[in-house]
Lab assay of single mutants.
Amino acid sequence: MGFKLLSKLLVYLTASIMAIASPLAFSVDSSGEYPTVSEIPVGEVRLYQIADGVWSHIATQSFDGAVYPSNGLIVRDGDELLLIDTAWGAKNTAALLAEIEKQIGLPVTRAVSTHFHDDRVGGVDVLRAAGVATYASPSTRRLAEVEGNEIPTHSLEGLSSSGDAVRFGPVELFYPGAAHSTDNLIVYVPSASVLYGGCAIYELSRTSAGNVADADLAEWPTSIERIQQHYPEAQFVIPGHGLPGGLDLLKHTTNVVKAHTNRSVVE
């Protein structure tokens, strides 16, 4: 069995187990497998329904001669939608809004960016022009300005110390501490036991640490421990890039980060 097929099978099995364990909360999309990078042309966006009122959005972007996937989250909030992270750029984010209108038909009224990198804030200006209120932590807003990236308009308070959590509509926002970046936030959907790890969490097929220019490698494993301790009931975990899975993604990420750190020390 090929690795790609095995990865998709694991996603399907995880979703099936969740649907059985929580039949009222989960209505997993039966329309197909989780979209992969090879299936999404740059400039297009796919939506994948995880649970009743919960979707991931998947886009792709060219970077350094390669094409990478990027995940975000959409959560229903009454007759409105909360968006977590842009679709990595203005063109993708405009396509995301169009796809949401086509498939869901509810307005996106608020959006949260989970850290300051372009795959999370690139497209904020498109959201703002569409009347979406954009939010991020003060740290993310400051770092985005320093980096020359787009800056969300509103500040999220109460997320300055490791372990801080605040309720934001249908989700809980959690600051686990520094990891992929010093400002990275985690998003949890309690009604569906869905954990969105953003770039602080890796997919299972990833074996290298990737972009760690703004990471705190020493603190990252401790931050992941905080996530595990705060959300032990999480059933569906979405990484910032690639295929979702279960809580095993947290341990896998820790292993990859520690291996990278150990290699760096040896070198």
Rank of each mutant, 00 (worst) to 15 (best):
P221L: 11
T207Y: 10
V256Q: 03
Y188T: 00
Q228F: 05
T140E: 04
T261C: 06
P35V: 08
N211A: 13
G89F: 03
F116Y: 09
K91P: 12
D29V: 11
H57A: 02
T140V: 03
V212S: 12
I104T: 05
A213C: 08
Y34Q: 08
T86I: 07
D85Q: 00
V54F: 06
N92T: 06
G72I: 01
P152D: 01
L13E: 07
M1G: 07
V166M: 13
E203A: 07
S191A: 12
S205E: 14
R141G: 02
G210R: 06
T86Q: 01
T153Q: 14
G89T: 04
D164M: 11
A178N: 09
E101G: 12
G53Q: 11
S31F: 10
G197S: 04
T86A: 05
N211M: 10
Y231P: 01
L81I: 11
Y175S: 01
G169A: 06
A66Y: 15
L13Y: 14
H115N: 06
A136C: 06
P35W: 09
V45G: 03
A21D: 15
V126K: 06
K4W: 06
S205V: 08
S223V: 06
F236K: 11
R46D: 06
M1Q: 03
G158P: 06
P176R: 02
Q103D: 14
T86N: 02
G2M: 07
E145I: 09
V37C: 08
V171L: 06
V37G: 15
A218K: 14
Y188M: 04
A200K: 03
G2Y: 15
S193E: 13
F174W: 01
I100N: 04
A25E: 14
Y12E: 11
A218D: 13
L9W: 14
T207W: 08
A218I: 12
K102C: 08
A19P: 14
A95S: 12
H154S: 08
S162K: 14
G105F: 04
Q235P: 05
Q49C: 08
V265A: 12
A98I: 09
A144G: 04
A136M: 03
D248Y: 09
I50M: 09
G65K: 10
L82G: 01
G158W: 04
W55Y: 08
T182N: 12
V194F: 04
G43F: 06
T14G: 04
L143P: 04
T254Q: 11
S31N: 10
G148A: 07
G240P: 04
L249C: 00
T86W: 00
V266A: 14
F116E: 03
S7K: 11
T86D: 00
A144Y: 04
L250Y: 05
A259P: 08
E44N: 13
T140N: 04
R141C: 06
G131L: 06
A179E: 05
F63S: 10
K8M: 14
A25P: 13
P41K: 14
S56H: 07
F236P: 00
E219S: 12
D85S: 00
I227C: 01
S113Y: 03
P239L: 04
A200S: 06
L13D: 05
H154L: 10
L185S: 05
V265P: 14
E33K: 13
T261L: 13
Y12M: 14
G210A: 07
T14P: 15
P232R: 09
I104G: 00
G53R: 09
E225T: 11
H230N: 13
E267T: 06
I201S: 05
H154W: 13
V266K: 14
C199P: 02
S31T: 12
E101I: 06
E44W: 08
V28P: 11
S16I: 12
G32L: 11
A179M: 06
A178T: 07
E150S: 03
T153I: 11
S30R: 13
V189P: 00
A213K: 12
L5M: 15
I224F: 05
T153A: 12
A165N: 12
